[in-house]
Write a protein that binds this DNA or RNA. Structure first.
Length: 112
DNA sequence: GCACTGACTCCCA
DNA sequence: ATGGGAGCCAGTG
């Protein structure tokens, strides 16, 4: 299947998350035009090649936590990246009130 | 083509 | 506030 157009759309949205902020799977899915595609975002990010420079680590779940078991290699990498960009973890949890990326989720900025 | 699984979320006890 | 269960959408066997 090579590359899914839906995945590319999601990657585009993720690439637009500003440095130092984070977003959730649900929000990214909404922005990409998939109101109930939270899980698809996970699939898309997993399939994202490194060459695309997709900041997948800026995407966390709705609870403000990393969707990997604590101590897992991926989880560590993700936390590293975020902390380096200024995102503060409190007991493994990010304060979404402060760091969640907000754009007009009503308007479809990414419709192409 | 059916059934299971998962980098999710929402609702309710 | 926390935990368990159902709903959703794609990918994989």
């Amino acid at each position: 299947m090579r590359v899914n157009p839906k995945h590319q759309k999601i990657w585009t949205v993720v690439k637009n998350i500003p440095k130092g902020l984070v977003s959730t799977y649900g929000d990214v899915a909404r922005c990409a035009g998939f109101p109930r595609g939270a899980r698809m975002v996970g699939v898309a990010l997993r399939a994202a090649p490194d060459g695309l420079n997709v900041p997948w680590y800026r995407v966390i779940n709705a609870k403000g936590q990393i969707s990997f078991p604590t101590g897992h290699e991926k989880e560590l990498t993700q936390r590293e990246h975020l902390e380096k960009e200024g995102v503060v973890f409190s007991s493994g949890i990010v304060n979404l009130k402060k760091y969640a990326w907000r754009v007009g989720l009503d308007r479809e900025l990414w419709q192409m």
